[in-house]
């Protein structure tokens, strides 16, 4: 660590103002990727979780491995892998779609664990009670088990969404023009990094803080 005379330590409000529209456009891309990715995670995670718990030969161990593998490796490298390997099989998507897909798949593995812990949190007595009621299997799931699973799973999924929102910044590495990529581009072009990166950080903070507040409110309403 060395000290250098202060250069560029001056916040330029008019510059900050001028780059705000571009950053907000980037934020819109970030939010789109988050929401689309979260949808994949939400549905795919439940599917992976059920597959893992179903004790099917081959498929359940495979689901277990996929979940653990995705959870045990960095999203950045998963993203590179998807980005460079898909075209080898003739699948050519835009970087945005590839990035969202990778984000969603990584999210699905994490969501699967949340669903599982929510399911495992239901006391075995509930299953036994359902058995004595002689409900059809669909009734057991939809009327007894799932209604008890959601209140536990939803806050975790909410936090997952916020985590995925922050992970979208990684998509900048495969040329998706989300907020961080925009901020960095502005820095490269104008040699001013202070305003764009700081503003990107603050915008991230605002959105995730607001989302967290919304989740907490919903959670409290659910609890009462």
């Amino acid at each position: 660590m060395g000290l250098r005379p202060m250069t560029g330590f001056s916040w330029d409000w008019s510059f900050a103002w001028s780059i705000l529209p571009a950053l907000l456009k980037g934020l819109a891309v970030t939010v789109q990727a988050t929401l689309a990715g979260f949808l994949i995670a939400f549905v795919g995670g439940l599917a992976l979780c059920l597959l893992r718990l179903a004790r099917l030969p081959l498929l359940s161990p495979l689901a277990w491995f996929v979940i653990e593998f995705l959870r045990g490796t960095p999203f950045l490298v998963q993203l590179y892998f998807t980005f460079y390997v898909l075209p080898n099989y003739g699948i050519i998507f835009s970087p945005f779609i590839t990035g969202t897909l990778a984000l969603g798949i990584y999210g699905a593995a994490r969501a699967a664990e949340f669903y599982r812990s929510a399911l495992e949190a239901i006391p075995p007595g509930q299953w036994e009670a359902a058995l004595t009621l002689k409900l059809p299997l669909s009734g057991v799931w939809f009327r007894i088990i799932l209604p008890q699973m959601w209140p536990v799973a939803l806050p975790m999924l909410g936090n997952l969404m916020i985590a995925m929102f922050k992970d979208t910044a990684v998509l900048s590495t495969i040329t998706v023009l989300e907020m961080v990529a925009v901020a960095k581009d502005i820095g490269v072009q104008t040699f001013r990094y202070l305003e764009p990166l700081t503003m990107a950080g603050i915008l991230f903070w605002c959105v995730s803080y607001l989302t967290a507040r919304v989740i907490r409110t919903v959670e409290e309403k659910h609890a009462s």
Binding site: V170, I202, S208
Partner: peptide
């Protein structure tokens, strides 16, 4: 609250502007 990537870039690109060269 904010993304680790942004924080990393901030430490890499912005901190030197304050005379802190890590």
């Amino acid at each position: 609250g904010s993304s680790a990537v942004v924080q990393l870039f901030w430490a890499f690109y912005v901190l030197p502007l304050f005379g802190i060269n890590l």
